[in-house]
Design a protein around this nucleic acid. Structure first.
Lengths: 184, 184
DNA sequence: TACTATATGGAGGGCCCCGCCACTTAGCAA
DNA sequence: TTGCTAAGTGGCGGGGCCCTCCATATAGTA
């Protein structure tokens, strides 16, 4: 892994850059062949660097995931546990709704795959866990809620609003609804 | 439309039956060509009866939609508005979670398409509307909630749980969470 | 400067969706 | 009953995508 040829690394970077554009333009279903074409490499090379669409998507969103985790760490020490928790949830939703294809990755919880602890949803869960725990201890969340539940819910909201006129606004609206409850 | 040849009607029925099996087995992504092959007709014939996967899926779920609407009508006169409303919501979720591909149809709210008032989500909305209204008048739901919100939420929950170990149970769990609220 | 593991890309197979068009046949009318 | 006609059908070809295999090119090293 560490011993990777320089040209390979360059190609990887170029392909990743193209992939970002392509996913932004066409969502999770972006064509791998199209990415190869635009990047000026053979389709086999793309497949070598990203075995399967899933891997490509994860790579595309990796830094954003990292940013969200960082945000989670920042909020861990905030004064108001509930506000911090909700802000994290809001940030997650906002990004997922604005980045096409992101929710698709979040939604998939393939068992055999999730064992690869690098799965992005796992990272996110680790990031939100302390926030949820603090908020729960303060009595600010319904008992029994797990971070996985939240990630799944957010993914669902975003997936379902993806085709709407204003996905970001709609997702935000629904998140608020879910936080408050439909019929408490 | 009314003047349809007998053989065409027979073919339609056969194709629809096969399509139901195929969707049940492979979800919303079932191959139209595979359906044609199994039904023993040319792929063009399938395309003629169902122009686009969307149309096929709607036809497959049409009677179930109708059943759900009927359930909605029954519940309209129930004693407890809140219980009736929640039961309808639960029934919708349960069916969507158990019928592969259904949520996909529900999630799509294509604007130009929705104008075709026959869209199944529209039918469902019409069915749930009175229930929601009654429950709202009884003060049992958060103000501002629309039926469209609910359908979207349910679709999202089901979509996001589709890949989980026990989708039906998971969807039910999340629905409960959403009804109660995460942090009321 | 040679050598070798690493990296590449093109070809080919399989599957799918789609549109076109010549052929068949149901249903009506004489 | 027998034609006739339009509705209905299916096969074919084009285009796209995903995936695998393998002969070739080259970065990095001895």
């Amino acid at each position: 892994m560490a011993a990777q040829r320089a040209d390979a690394r360059q190609n990887y970077a170029r392909i990743l850059a193209v992939a970002e554009d392509e996913v932004a333009a066409h969502g999770a279903g972006a064509s791998l062949e199209q990415i190869a074409r635009t990047a000026g490499v053979g389709s086999a090379t793309v497949r070598r660097h990203f075995p399967g669409r899933r891997a490509m998507l994860e790579a595309v969103f990796a830094n954003r995931i990292e940013a969200l985790c960082e945000r989670g760490r920042e909020l861990a020490g905030a004064a108001d546990p509930r506000a911090a928790f909700l802000e994290w949830l809001g940030a997650l939703t906002a990004y997922a709704a604005s980045a096409r294809g992101f929710a698709t990755v979040l939604a998939q919880e393939d068992v055999d795959y999730a064992e690869h602890a690098k799965a992005c949803s796992v990272k996110l869960s680790d990031s939100g866990e302390p926030l949820l725990r603090r908020a729960a201890r303060a009595g600010a969340v319904t008992p029994g809620v797990t971070v996985a539940d939240l990630v799944t819910l957010v993914a669902g909201i975003v997936l379902a609003t993806e085709g709407h006129a204003d996905p970001v606004a709609e997702a935000d609206r629904l998140l608020r609804l879910v936080v408050a409850g439909i019929s408490p």
